[in-house]
C-alpha cells in the first residue's frame, strides 16, 4: 500500500480529526478505535494484530512496525 493512502485510511480508522498524520503522530487508542485499526489492518494487509500489541502503540510508527514497514511503499 502507498504510504499516502495508508495515512489517509488510517486516519479514518483511528477516528482522528487532524488534517494530516505522519510517522510521529501520537496515537491514543480507545476501545472503538482499536476495533477500527484491527479491522483496517486485517482488510488491507491480511494480518491480524493482537489487541494486547495495540495497547503498546504510542505513535503511528509503532503501528507501522506491527504491520511491517515492507508492506508500505513511498
Amino acid at each position: 500500500m502507498k504510504k499516502s493512502v495508508f495515512f489517509t485510511e488510517l486516519k479514518d480508522a483511528l477516528m482522528l480529526e487532524d488534517d494530516s498524520i505522519n510517522e510521529s503522530t501520537q496515537v491514543r487508542l480507545t476501545s472503538l478505535s482499536t476495533l477500527g485499526v484491527i479491522a483496517f489492518i486485517d482488510e488491507n494487509f491480511n494480518k491480524q494484530v493482537k489487541a494486547a500489541d495495540l495497547r503498546e502503540v504510542k505513535i503511528i510508527d509503532d503501528l507501522i512496525n506491527l504491520i511491517g514497514p515492507e508492506n508500505l511503499v513511498a
Binding site: S31, T34, L35, I38, A39, D42, Q48, A51, A52
Partner: peptide
C-alpha cells in the same frame, strides 16, 4: 468486557 480481544477472537 475487553472488546478488542473479543474482536480478535471473532475475526480469527
Amino acid at each position: 468486557m475487553d472488546g478488542p480481544d473479543i474482536f480478535n477472537f471473532t475475526i480469527r
